[in-house]
Amino acid sequence: MKEIIIIMMTMVLVDNIVLAKALGACSLIKLPASAGRSAAMGLAVTFAMIGATLFTWPLDRYWLVPFDLEYFRIFLFIPLIFLAGYLVTAVLKKAAHSYWESMGCTSSLISANCAVAGIAFINTDQGFTYFEAVYCALGAGLGFTGAMLIFAGMKYKIDKANNIPEAFRGIPAYIMALAILSMVFIGFSQAAAALIS
C-alpha cells in the first residue's frame, strides 16, 4: 500500500509526465482554454493510459521478455495503444454523447498522444508488478489532468492579455508559459522528493 502511494505521488508531483518529461506537451498547447474541456480530455487520457498498460504490461512480461522478443515491442505496442485510445473514445461517446460532441475531442488527440504511448513504454522498463504499473498509469494520468487544468487557467489569462508583443501572440506565448510552469514545477518537485524520501 505504501509503495503504491509513493508511486502515485511520484508520478503526480515529482515525475509529472508533462512538466518533468515533456510528454504530451502538444495536446496542452493545441487544446483551447476551457476548464471543462481540459478535465474531459485529462479523464480520457487517464483511461487510455490505464487501458494501454492493462494490455501491454502482461504482453511484455509474459511473452516478449521470456522469449527474448523485445525487438517486437514497438510493432506490438503501438497498435495496442491506438486500440486503447479508440476504445476509450468509443465508450465515452456512448456514455456521454452530447457532452463529448460539444468538447470537440477527436480520437486522434487521445491515441496519437505521446503521454499515453510514453507511459506504456516507461512502465515496462521499471520493474513494476502489474498493480504497481496500473497505479503508475493512474498517477501519470492524474498528473496530466492537473497540468492540463493549471495550463487552461494560464491560457485563459494569456488570451485575455492585450499587451503581449505581436510576434509572441499565440503559440510562442503558450510555450513560454509552459516553460515558466515547468520551471516552477522543477523547484517544487525537488521539495516534494525530499519530503517523500
Binding site: 512538466l19 508583443p165 510576434a167 503559440i171 510555450i175 513560454m176 516553460a179 515558466i180 515547468s182 522543477i186
Partner: peptide, 22 residues
Amino acid sequence: VLLPGGFFLLSLLAALIKHINR
C-alpha cells in the same frame, strides 16, 4: 540543458519565425 530552458528556446524560435513570416 534543463527542460524549462528547452521550452524557453523553443518559444523564442517560434516568435522569431512568426516575425519573419509576418
